[in-house]
Design a protein around this nucleic acid. Sequence first.
DNA 1: GTTCTAGAAC
DNA 2: GTTCTAGAAC
Length: 755
Amino acid sequence: MDMDVDEPTKGQEEKQGKPIIVVLMGAPGSGKSTFCEQVMGSSVRPWVRVCQDTIKNGKAGTKAQCIESARSALREGKSVFIDRCNLEKEQRDEFVKLGGPQVDVHAVVLDLPAKLCISRSVKRTGHEGNLQGGKAAAVVNRMLQKKELPNLSEGFGRITFCQNESDVESAIRTYSGLGPLDTLPHGTFGQKSPGAKVQLGIMKFLKKTDVPTNTESTSNKVQDSNASQITGGKDTVKGTGLFTESGSMESKKGEQPVVGSAGTDVSLDNAPTLAFPSISTADFQFDLEKASDIIVEKVAEFVNKLGNARLVLVDLTHKSKILSLVRAKASQKNIDSKRFFTFVGDITKLHSEGGLCCNVIANAANWRLKPGGGGVNAAIFNAGGPALEVATKEQAKSLYPGNAVVVPLPSTSPLFCREGVTHVIHVLGPNMNPQRPNYLDNDYSKGCKILHDTYTSLFEGFASIVRTQKKVFKGSFGNLRLKLPESKDHSESGPTNHSTNTYQKIKREDLHESERNKRSKGDQAEAENDSDSNASKSNLHSDGSKNKSWGTWAQAVYNIAMHPEKQRDVVLEISDDVVVLNDLYPKAQKHLLVVARHPGLDRLADVCKEHIQLLRTMHAVGLKWAEKFLHDDSTLVFRLGYHSEPSMRQLHLHVISQDFNSAHLKNKKHWNSFNTAFFRDSVDVLEEVSSDGKAILNDDESLMSMELRCNRCRSAHPTIPKLKLHIGRCRASFPSTLLENGRLVTAPSNSSNDP
DNA sequence: GTTCTAGAAC
DNA sequence: GTTCTAGAAC
């Protein structure tokens, strides 16, 4: 149903592979050039950066020059970044006009805090626009006053708003990941409050200093300062009537100086807030009394370290036993109810349905960090969408009980747009449910320790987010004198350095870099000694239409053919025309290669009439070896032939026994490359080349994904292991086509030798 | 060509 | 939870 709608457009777009023109918008210092560099540095799509600051031989040029340069790049099928401020609609109009049915127009808005842009502009020394020093602040300020945020009606197919570093990173990832034919969904992404002049993230902090003059209605204010429980949901309107359950706290809290604290409440309502479910007490069946003790103990430990940040324990129902236990114990411990309280509502809809702003939510995850499984985990992954899944994968692949992983939420996630959630912290608590992994078998001494660790990891993860946000804010608005209390511990460098990230893998590319350099140097040295060194870089087919470059790994057979004396241990036979060697990864009991030594003959496609004698020699040599093996084991059956499109450079004839009994035969391609039309029997190739001057090639990729059929009885098998099981037993005779024309090579008196 | 690994399929 | 495939890395 969905497919019917999606398929036609998708198909069209894939065929066309439309270039994209991305109009970047942002003040100097907003990171436009960095954005381009980062995408272009890792993208496989051809990108051109059109930068007005450098367009005239490295010097600043005109808008017209940019338009012309963009137009010509698009004509060549390249995608284009327009790297200039483009803050006003009029400045963008002509770039938008470059779009059309053949070109997709996107906007990426780097709407970062003004102070951040200014401080970057001031600091930079080698900026291409030469906007440095004190002038920068004035220029940036003036430009931002004229700022007109784009909208789709201007002609953009897609607009991405980035309001902080993590938005920018997410947008970079999105564009870096685009292959040459990929397209992105249309629409507006990442805009939090359309038309808002002040950014949400800043409002959060401005509130506190703003209070005296702030007349804005605080529609989100749901909290009575005496209350320890707040209820979400539209029907359960906020009011003192709700708080009857917390009567025991009221008397105690009443002693606190709450009068005149309304302003503080407003600021707290916008303070960094972590909403978390009770860990391990639902599906993992952890004892509620013990769990509530631990929650309260950990909250008491952290709540004062977090400045004005808040912790909120969330459950779905008023009847929640864990909520009432925790409320009671928190009240006994005199925990500040403004900084910690319980809340009834859906943790994925705290803002939209409960009116509670939480920038961080915790997830009671599973150890694989995968969606599903029901409960909070399923709900959060559902609400977070694919963006959460992807972002999670980037941080960690699994989680041990007691640990947490902080995941910055991309702006494309609905949780980000709708609920204002910037981070999800996955935690895995101890499990007391025998049906679930890591069952602790009622060992509560272990269980309690793990639950302690879980909350410690969770709250530390949250603390690191708070610290990072504070740092960004201080860096850009230091002159506003924030009233956020300092936290004691500055040793952690931020959420991405959180201890649980040890699961992250070091990129393989980095490890291989030096190795790769060594090898390519070696190849070069070798190529220089060869008369046909060009062939190693690009290779022209006989029809002249097709170029292919061979990877380093694909040169091994070629190297042996050219210098067999260097690799005597693998070579079985050397003549002027051929070398014979055992396939390094034989796909059957006997599997040889007869390799042509003729330079420039990379593959069957390169073969023409003049090579017929060479092909006959190769066939004769292959046959000789097959017969030798048959002499030792008459039950073997051989086939001689070529791959239509080989993986290894240099024409080679496979001599392979038809048992395919080998641990190296592992996948569909291995099987199908020897058992479909992709494999060209040597006898047929000889006929074709002598009559037509060239061999027929069946190099269609689809042959490699054909169903797996037995080479004798032609029965189909679902997997390689099952196929191998079958061919180990199948004694059916070979198909008639193989029995004709000498395609199969058997022992001379094979049948009479059978017992 | 292989190895590695995520994730689909069972 | 395990087996198997497929895609990307070299």
